[in-house]
Write a protein that binds this DNA or RNA. Structure first.
Lengths: 111, 111
DNA sequence: CTGATACTTCACCATGTAGCGAAGTATTGT
DNA sequence: ACAATACTTCGCTACATGGTGAAGTATCAG
């Protein structure tokens, strides 16, 4: 699978653009080490579909996968998210509203 | 053309996933009010191509367009970026590295 | 009015993405 | 050995994205 040479930050933002993938990341934050099936079950998503999402998240470096026996445990790897954050941070001086209010505003996305 | 009802934050991250669009945003930050042609010229991009990028950025609410006569001046509108930032902010406790270092790290993306 | 300029829309192409069922591989349980 | 489990890969469909050139619309200059 030849990945076109999109930059790391391209892949990060692209991975974050999908609500299913953001859900996966939030879930992993609260429950690290979940298996592929455990991640797929509550999303009414078949395994091949979950595999593709995990591939995207892996390519973006947002998760790591470790196989033990026949089960794969998935974990967060937040480095690339820091870079995405840093990119957005460059607009800081243009902002006027406090971030704390906005964290509450997007909280509903977690469900 | 049936527009899927993707959420605002989907559109924001998706818009930010393209290097050309991030370039446009950075350029507008330093030179607000540039016209469509002025934005397209240094990118070796034809006007229809630029139009599509501006449509994506508009749909994401990241820019505003104001027509005066026959020229359109484009400006930043950073609200949605704050929401994207807020989403990423939720991982804050998992982070260990200082953001300031990372801001420098992604600085090259601005060219 | 006529022509140039600035943008907009249209039709099209190539490629990428998200999902599925089916089939394959590797590990565990009996 | 055999079957079930957990993932992985394959082939396919449907649709979105990023780009182009050509044609259309609106404004400005002479």
């Amino acid at each position: 699978m030849v990945k076109y040479q999109s930059s790391a930050i391209d892949r990060t933002f692209s991975a974050l653009a999908d609500p299913t993938r953001r859900h996966i990341l939030l879930r992993l934050k609260d429950a690290p080490g979940l298996s592929v099936s455990e991640l797929a079950r509550p999303l009414s998503l078949k395994l091949p579909g979950m595999m593709k999402h995990l591939d995207v998240l892996s390519d973006a470096g947002l998760i790591t996968r470790a196989k033990t026996g026949r089960t794969v445990s998935v974990n967060l790897s937040v480095g690339p998210m820091q870079e995405a954050m840093a990119w957005l941070q460059r607009y800081e001086r243009l902002w006027t509203v406090s971030l704390d209010r906005l964290v509450a505003f997007v909280e509903k996305d977690g469900e």
